[in-house]
Design a protein around this nucleic acid. Structure first.
Length: 303
DNA sequence: GTCTGTTTTCCTGGTT
DNA sequence: CAACCAGGAAAACAGA
């Protein structure tokens, strides 16, 4: 997965970048970016997030989204815990929301969101105290130490942030059901005992990383940060097309720390998905693929 | 160390 | 001709 070296580069970039900086947080100029708009896709899509450096009031919609994602990641909640569609708002609006608003918008997760935003509003950052509070309320079923490390060491790596959100949807749906049924915060100490080992082991491979198809999906799901790499051809049918095939391959290679990745090789991996019905063939259309029945998390109103 | 699932690499041949 | 597609074979890789 992500090497420490790569991790450090990204982390450093995200920490030192400021709005006027033109430096590439990944530390080099990608050859494939030549000829593209002056936008490093690896930066704009994955790294160099600055929501944590700005007062929430000044967040863009996307930064609001990143904050939500951060909460999910940090607390090992999954995507269905927070209805992102309810937070298609900028920071100013977010800051004006009351606890009631949050609860209305996000149900049992509302309290967490409210606490977090209050802390950010008054302290300017998501401090450890905050995380402890959050962790006390929604704990992970995972116990690996890395998950409990400070978010600023881990959370801005482009590894795993979006996939986890989708991979554990089912799990969180249960959490939400439990929490709303009991009107109590989610107690995962109890829940942990209820989970069977098999269930916890259901995330067999790739617990933190991402599969190629998830990587592709996540690019598609972030239109604001997807500088023309891949686009939906038919959103409801899950049909999409590569616009910059080699750029996507390079980005994938960057994620896997493999500088020799090409679209040729990426597409071979994509073709393996046909058999597993993660993708369906789209005949006669170059660079066009379609999500299959075993691909999850791409539908607009999938829950 | 083995097993297994996934991805990478290389390849041949075909299509747009 | 370049770029892409299809899929076999085998190696590499990572997690269990």
């Amino acid at each position: 997965m992500c090497s420490g070296h790569q991790a450090n580069m990204i982390l450093q970039g995200s920490n030192i970048m400021n709005i006027n900086s033109s430096s590439n947080p990944l530390g080099h100029q990608s050859s494939w970016s030549h000829g593209y708009p002056p936008c490093d896709v690896s930066t704009s899509f994955f790294g160099a997030s600055q929501w944590h450096e700005l007062h929430p009031q000044y967040w863009t919609k996307f930064q609001v989204w990143e904050w939500l994602q951060h909460l999910l990641d940090t607390n090992q909640m999954d995507g269905s815990c927070i209805p992102f569609q309810e937070f298609d708002i900028c920071g100013e609006r977010l800051c004006s929301m009351t606890l009631q608003d949050f609860t209305q918008a996000a149900g049992s997760a509302g309290q967490l969101l409210y606490n977090s935003i209050q802390s950010l509003k008054w302290h300017g950052q998501c401090g450890s105290q905050m995380l402890q509070t959050l962790n006390a309320v929604v704990k992970s079923e995972h116990t690996e130490p890395s998950l409990m490390t400070s978010w600023n060491e881990e959370r801005f790596l482009f590894d795993g942030s979006y996939d986890e959100m989708y991979e554990s949807k089912t799990h969180c749906r249960e959490e939400i059901t439990m929490a709303s049924a009991s009107h109590h915060p989610i107690d995962l100490d109890t829940k942990k005992q209820q989970d069977s080992p098999q269930k916890l082991g259901s995330k067999k491979h790739n617990p933190r990383g991402t599969h190629l198809w998830e990587f592709i999906r996540d690019i598609l799901l972030m239109p604001e940060k997807n500088p023309g790499l891949i686009k939906w051809e038919d959103r409801s049918e899950g049909v999409f097309r590569f616009l910059k095939s080699e750029a996507v391959a390079q980005l994938w290679g960057k994620k896997k720390n493999n500088s020799s990745m090409t679209y040729e090789k990426l597409s071979r991996a994509m073709r393996y998905y046909y058999k597993r019905e993660i993708l369906e063939r789209v005949d006669g259309r170059r660079l066009v693929y379609k999500f299959g029945k075993n691909a999850r998390g791409w539908k607009e109103n999938e829950n």
